[in-house]
């Protein structure tokens, strides 16, 4: 490393700024290009954590991420008004999640209602549109439907349990680049 380079490096971290704690942050709307570096760093790191977790813990990775998501779901939904109907709970949840995840209840055209009973199972189809998990996975070239998706499964299940008191399970039916179809199985 040449001396010139070190001086330059030092200079780049010096300024004439007057820094007061009451004025922080100095800038509330950073440039998209700066935001992008942070965003991609977070996505990249998350992807690597998940990949490493999978390598070391194998299938146990799913349990870890599911648990993390469930904790999050319980925590957030704790402050919600308790209610019986799952559809209402889903509605509240979708408001809460908007920004990170957006979803809607969905049904194939041959079904009358959103709550579907089939083969002794009661379930609701959910289509997830915006999803930070999907974005992270696609950023990192990881398969959709793996351990990181379990965080969302846990989250939805935890929140539904907290709001309605009903046990539920979320299953993945299909993944795509623009949306994913999930099945919320009610018990």
């Amino acid at each position: 490393m040449s001396a010139g380079y070190i001086d330059e490096l030092h200079d780049s971290f010096r300024s004439d700024l007057v820094y007061r704690s009451e004025d922080i942050p100095l800038e509330c709307s950073p440039k998209p290009k700066e935001m992008e570096q942070t965003l991609h760093g977070v996505m990249k790191l998350n992807g690597l954590v998940i990949r490493s977790l999978e390598e070391i813990a194998g299938r146990g990775a799913n349990a870890v991420t599911y648990r993390a998501g469930k904790k999050f779901g319980h925590e957030v939904a704790k402050y919600f008004q308790k209610r019986e109907d799952v559809e209402g709970a889903l509605h509240e949840l979708s408001d809460l999640l908007r920004g990170q995840y957006s979803f809607e209840v969905w049904k194939p055209e041959d079904k009358e209602t959103f709550i579907i009973e089939e083969n002794g199972e009661t379930f609701i189809y959910l289509v997830f549109h915006d999803c930070i998990v999907r974005q992270t996975l696609r950023r990192n070239g990881l398969e959709q439907g793996g351990p990181l998706c379990q965080t969302l499964f846990g989250y939805v299940v935890g929140a539904i349990e907290e709001i309605t008191g009903r046990k539920a399970k979320l299953e993945i039916v299909h993944t795509g680049p623009n949306a994913c179809l999930k099945k919320l199985v009610l018990k």
């Binding site: 996975l137 696609r138 950023r139 990192n140 070239g141 990881l142 680049p177």
Partner: peptide, 9 residues
Amino acid sequence: REPCRDIYG
């Protein structure tokens, strides 16, 4: 476009 799509893959 897609970071997860590659010619080989």
